[in-house]
């Protein structure tokens, strides 16, 4: 896996864990995730609800509730446009401290599924964007307003001079999402985390927003972590993809390999079960039997064991599956996947 020596890596997660302390036990929402994000690239994280993809984002952004316990390392290699000699370990920062607040917004920005939740309803969209800019980039109010207007224009909001003084509820769903992207991008962050940004939108609006994110990424050279449950969206946006299941990354590879040479049985089943218009025929879908187990007090074995067609009692049912490098740069967490050069990675 790419490491510290690799100059292009801007953010690296090493064995990141998030546990929620509940009355009934420990909920392992994220269970040893190792991923790295390259400069200017998009890392897609895909999985079904409850797989821990959003919690992973929350761990990077450190916005998890107080009963969440973040473990492992989350290393940030670049701050304010400069390469750091010693990376900042976000996982070790105080989630309410000044350091993380300096990183949030300025270096790492986030776009949420529900823009209404990100904007305060009692301030105009413009005020909120200007506030962020004055905090991180440009303290002068007039200049900050100029930047805000420019950014709103950049995300395709028509007549931004007028829209900047409108309240969030005055904008339509698609416009609100654009405004939130504008707020996230106004400080030119090095990393943008997009958590299901188009899930609440209609397909035609989703198409516009996806287009926008891709265009902006190229323009301001931002690295993106794109979180979604929709493999179609992943195919359109990502360079590298991590498939998550039960808090673990089960497959991690380049986007092309994921769709054309998937190795993990879960990824394969998932790809088969998407109904797409082009492989249309009236008939049965390939589905995955059973449901995702609840991630609490689980036995020590492959998480996909119950639902997998290849599962072998003596092998997969005994211990957690190891991460195997199936092809160069293509990792899968499965006993049944052959390592390409018998090289095992933890």
């Amino acid at each position: 896996m790419p490491g510290k020596d690799d100059d292009s890596v801007i953010l690296e997660m090493r064995e990141t864990r998030v546990r929620f302390k509940m009355d009934a036990g420990l909920l392992k929402a994220v269970d040893g995730v190792s991923l790295s994000l390259r400069k200017g690239a998009t890392l897609g994280i895909v999985g079904e609800s409850g797989c821990g993809k959003s919690v992973t984002a929350g761990a990077v952004f450190r916005t998890l509730p107080s009963y969440a316990e973040v473990g492992g390392d989350i290393l940030l290699y670049e701050k304010d446009g400069k390469r750091l000699d010693e990376p900042i370990n976000i996982a070790k920062l105080n989630p309410t401290g000044p350091e993380i607040r300096g990183i949030r917004g300025g270096n790492i920005a986030m776009v949420f599924q529900e823009p209404m939740k990100a904007f305060s309803p009692i301030h105009t969209v413009g005020n909120q964007i200007i506030e962020a800019i004055r905090l991180h980039v440009e303290p002068d109010e007039g200049k900050a307003r100029r930047i805000a207007i420019d950014t709103l224009g950049l995300v395709g909001i028509s007549s931004p001079e007028q829209r900047i003084d409108e309240y969030p509820h005055q904008l339509s769903g698609g416009m609100r999402q654009r405004a939130m992207i504008a707020m996230a991008l106004s400080c030119k962050p090095a990393i943008l985390i997009a958590d299901e940004p188009t899930t609440a939108l209609d397909v035609t609006v989703q198409a516009q927003v996806l287009d926008l994110i891709n265009k902006l990424k190229a323009e301001i050279n931002t690295s993106v972590i794109y979180i979604t449950h929709d493999l179609g969206v992943i195919a359109e946006t990502s360079d590298e993809v991590a498939v998550m299941y039960l808090g673990k990354v089960v497959e991690y590879c380049a986007v092309d390999a994921l769709f054309h040479d998937p190795r993990h049985p879960y990824t394969r089943a998932l790809l088969r079960s998407i109904p797409t218009a082009d492989k249309r025929r009236k008939g049965r879908f390939d589905s995955i039997r059973g449901t995702v187990p609840y991630p609490m007090n689980l036995p020590e074995r492959c998480g996909f064991f119950d639902r997998c067609d290849l599962a072998e009692e003596g092998l997969c049912g005994r211990s957690a599956a190891p991460m195997v490098e199936a092809a160069p740069g293509h990792f899968a967490r499965c006993f049944k996947v052959e390592p390409y050069a018998a090289k095992e990675v933890v």
Binding site: V203, S238, I274, T276, D278
Partner: peptide, 20 residues
């Protein structure tokens, strides 16, 4: 437009979108 807007789960096929 509706048909073209749906993302295709295949990175090799760049869709020809009709943007509304």
């Amino acid at each position: 437009a509706l048909l073209s807007a749906k993302p295709v789960a295949d990175p090799r096929r760049k869709s020809h979108r009709i943007m509304l």
